[in-house]
Simulated assay, not measured.
Amino acid sequence: MLDVVLSGLDWATRFSDPLAWLVLGAFLATTVLELTERRERARQAGVAAWGLFGVFWFSLIYHFAVVQRSVIEGVGTLVAVPASFYVGYLLWSGRDSLFVLSRAILLMGAVFFPFESIPVLRQFLVETVTDQTALLISLIGSSPDLVTGYEAVVDGQSVVAYDGYIVGEKEHLYHNTFVFADGESPIFYTIVIACTGIGSMAIFVGLIAAVQAPLRRKLRAFAVSIPIIYALNLGRNVMIAVGFGEQRFQLFPDLIMSVFGLTDPRQVSYIVVDRIVAQSLSVVALVGITYLVVRELPEVLTVVEDLLFVLTGSEYDLRAALDVPAAAVEGEPEAGAETGASSRSDD
């Protein structure tokens, strides 16, 4: 029975890319209709968009839970499926604040998918991040080789190889693979698009751009999020590369191999440092960065509160909890700002 389920989930994965573009198109239609004040048409389009979004996440369950063996991303994907359908239901029921979240999803996709799907952009970003990661690795005294590899055919399958060994999970001939010497066979660590931080940066670009607020405060919100995400992501890459390449995270090997279905004991370090340590720290970092953004751009709380309602079914007043000035949220003059041309200070 389990094999049948996994086979079905694997089959669904092939539809993820076309579904992604359908989702973007549906959210684009929703946003255009909403901004042109055709609210009921926008509501119908939004419900369809969120339904497609749920199907999109369903198509990725196998990839994150089985292929990537990621507990956090796997659980997140499972939650995203019913959550997306529920958002569509809430939008249909009249929760109009979800139009902001819908607009944010469109903008997130508009930032992320060009780098995911356009080869020249993907290669530029991946190799730029790889070069910067290599520099940081060298600064801490580690010296892996950085290679491209070459195409090879093994058992009728086209793969990327280096020095006679298959480079796992490498799909493109980019200069993005670190090679660590380890006894008889090397350890490869390849920087892919998921290692560039573009996904997390796209989330915050979408959130910040979607809300109605003065440009000055939006720029401040960008300043306390995007550079920090990029820098932390480089640190994450260094930690994973060195931790895996030099086998520094061989913790509870028997347990990890059993739980994650590993056959190569050296993969234990990768699972621990990436799937457990790095991804857990990423969640903490994103929460912290969200707090920094909210302090500069309280309007984002509308989206955060909607997400919390979707997940918990309860309403939250984060403005009061975080001591955010109500005037800034409602678009009124900020504390200390001038209220009119007649206001002036004494000389």
Rank of each mutant, 00 (worst) to 15 (best):
M1C: 15
D3S: 14
L6C: 03
W11K: 15
A12T: 07
A12I: 13
R14K: 12
F15C: 11
F15R: 08
S16G: 06
S16K: 11
L19A: 09
W21K: 05
L24E: 10
F27D: 03
L28P: 02
A29G: 07
T30C: 05
T30N: 05
T30W: 06
T31W: 11
V32W: 03
L33W: 05
L35H: 08
L35D: 09
T36W: 10
R38E: 07
R39G: 02
E40M: 05
A45Q: 10
G46W: 06
A48V: 08
F53K: 04
V55F: 04
V55R: 03
F56L: 13
W57P: 02
S59Q: 05
S59T: 11
L60Y: 03
S70W: 05
V81W: 11
V81F: 07
P82E: 06
P82S: 05
A83Y: 11
S84E: 09
Y86Q: 09
G88T: 13
L91I: 12
S93P: 06
G94K: 07
D96A: 13
D96F: 09
L101K: 02
R103C: 08
L107S: 08
V111I: 14
F115P: 01
F115N: 00
S117Q: 14
I118K: 05
P119H: 13
V120K: 13
Q123G: 15
T130P: 10
D131E: 15
A134F: 12
L135F: 09
S138N: 11
I140H: 04
S142K: 14
S142T: 13
V147K: 09
V147E: 14
G149W: 10
V154K: 00
G156I: 12
V160G: 02
V160T: 07
A161R: 05
Y162Q: 12
E171V: 15
L173Y: 04
T177Q: 13
V179W: 04
I187L: 15
T190H: 01
I191T: 00
V192Q: 12
G197R: 00
I198P: 00
S200N: 15
S200D: 09
G206F: 05
I208W: 11
P214Q: 10
R216L: 10
R216I: 11
K218H: 01
R220V: 00
F222D: 01
V224L: 04
I228K: 01
I229W: 00
R236G: 00
I240V: 08
I240W: 00
A241H: 02
V242H: 01
G245S: 03
E246R: 14
I256S: 03
M257H: 08
F260M: 04
V268N: 01
V268C: 03
V273L: 02
A278P: 02
V284P: 05
V284K: 09
L286Q: 03
T290F: 10
R295T: 12
L297Y: 11
V300P: 10
T302C: 08
E305K: 05
L307T: 10
V310L: 05
L311R: 02
G313T: 07
Y316V: 12
D317C: 04
D317L: 06
R319D: 06
R319F: 07
A321I: 13
A321H: 09
D323F: 07
P325H: 08
P325L: 10
A327V: 13
A328K: 12
A328Q: 13
V329D: 08
E330R: 14
S342P: 06
S343M: 14
S345H: 15
